[in-house]
């Protein structure tokens, strides 16, 4: 159980996290979703006390993380796959981490086998690929068999098998009644793993709901209609304050009314309709819907206007 109350973090004038309140409950996988720079990593670092909140509180199982007498048994965290000394072997890294909590060497070997690191455990961590580093980070997080698992972008750099493994691990631990909190900027990943979603953008919580609700929420009952007379039907439907989009030949996308109502209108006005398909929103669309105003780093559009010389340069060329 993780509880944040009015949690904020400012770096000078810049606000990374702007007073968020949320709860991550045990027994399910909670996804933490948001664009780059939204405040996900900062929030996660504050959970384990690496960053101090500028305001508000964050507790794990009722207490600030540092106040627990057995922090690694409370929370296992993968915050940064690069949080290892590059010249130390994976085995010695885990051994040193385990020693702080008097965790036996047998557990170190267990997590090494579990994460598939056995073959490279005695090699320097600095030579690890991104995926191997990620596995070492996960091994480190699992050392204390924690009640709460926090994984920041856990599937980054993992091969498909590794991705599947992380997904199953998260679900398995949640099934044991543990709290699992994982962040990602990949909606597809969340759709397959998370039960509950917290969406963050520009340091603010945009949505905090079960994944099904988020999908349903943005899903404004859209229906694809194929008809012989798009103009007429479109006109008839628009009159009732319904949004109609004409995308392709003989195809309309209608939102705001259900299939039955559309059929009724078509029947009364003698318009031929040969397809009525309710459309479901993907999480991806729901996500873009939610975060479109809160993306910190917009990619620039590649249009021709941008290719033209800037006005100042134009002036120079005239001379």
């Amino acid at each position: 159980m993780i509880e944040a109350v009015n949690l904020a973090k400012h770096y000078g004038a810049k606000t990374a996290v702007g007073g968020v309140t949320f709860t991550v409950k045990p027994g399910m996988v909670t996804g933490f979703l948001g664009p780059n720079g939204a405040g996900k990593s900062t929030t996660m670092r504050m959970i384990v006390g690496l960053d101090k909140p500028s305001a508000g509180t964050i507790t794990v199982n009722g207490k600030p993380y540092a106040k627990h007498h057995d922090p690694l048994h409370q929370v296992g965290a993968l915050l940064d796959a690069k949080a290892v000394h590059t010249s130390r072997s994976a085995y010695n890294h885990l051994l040193a981490m385990a020693a702080t909590h008097n965790i036996p060497t047998s557990r170190v070997n267990e997590v090494i086998d579990m994460t598939g690191l056995a073959a490279v455990a005695k090699k320097k961590a600095g030579g690890f690929s991104l995926g191997m580093g990620q596995r070492l980070g996960i091994a480190s997080a699992l050392l204390g068999d924690p009640q709460t698992l926090i994984l920041d972008e856990p599937v980054n750099g993992l091969d498909p098998e590794g991705v599947l493994w992380v997904r199953n691990l998260a679900k398995h631990l949640a099934g044991q009644g543990k709290t699992v909190f994982l962040s990602s900027h990949l909606m597809s990943e969340m759709a397959q793993t998370a039960d509950h979603l917290i969406v963050i953008g520009r340091g603010q919580i945009i949505a905090d709901a079960p994944i099904a609700t988020i999908l349903a929420g943005s899903q404004q009952a859209r229906v694809r209609v194929r008809t012989a007379d798009t103009a007429r039907l479109g006109q008839l439907l628009s009159a009732n304050g319904v949004q109609v989009q004409n995308n392709e030949r003989e195809t309309l996308e209608v939102s705001g009314v259900d299939s039955r109502q559309i059929a009724q209108v078509a029947l009364e006005n003698q318009v031929l309709v040969y397809e009525l398909t309710p459309l479901t929103t993907s999480l991806e669309e729901a996500y873009f819907d939610l975060t479109k105003d809160s993306v910190e780093y917009h990619s620039q559009e590649f249009d021709d206007a941008a290719a033209e010389p800037a006005p100042a340069l134009k002036g120079l060329q005239k001379r």
Binding site: A99, H101, I103, A118, D145, E161, L173
Partner: peptide, 23 residues
């Protein structure tokens, strides 16, 4: 390498938690 194993919660149990001697 096999990564299909699911964690056993056993071995970490029964430890004493964070101690200065451990650190």
């Amino acid at each position: 390498m096999s990564t299909t194993t699911i964690p056993a919660p056993s071995a970490a149990a029964g430890t004493t938690g964070l101690t200065f001697l451990g650190v």
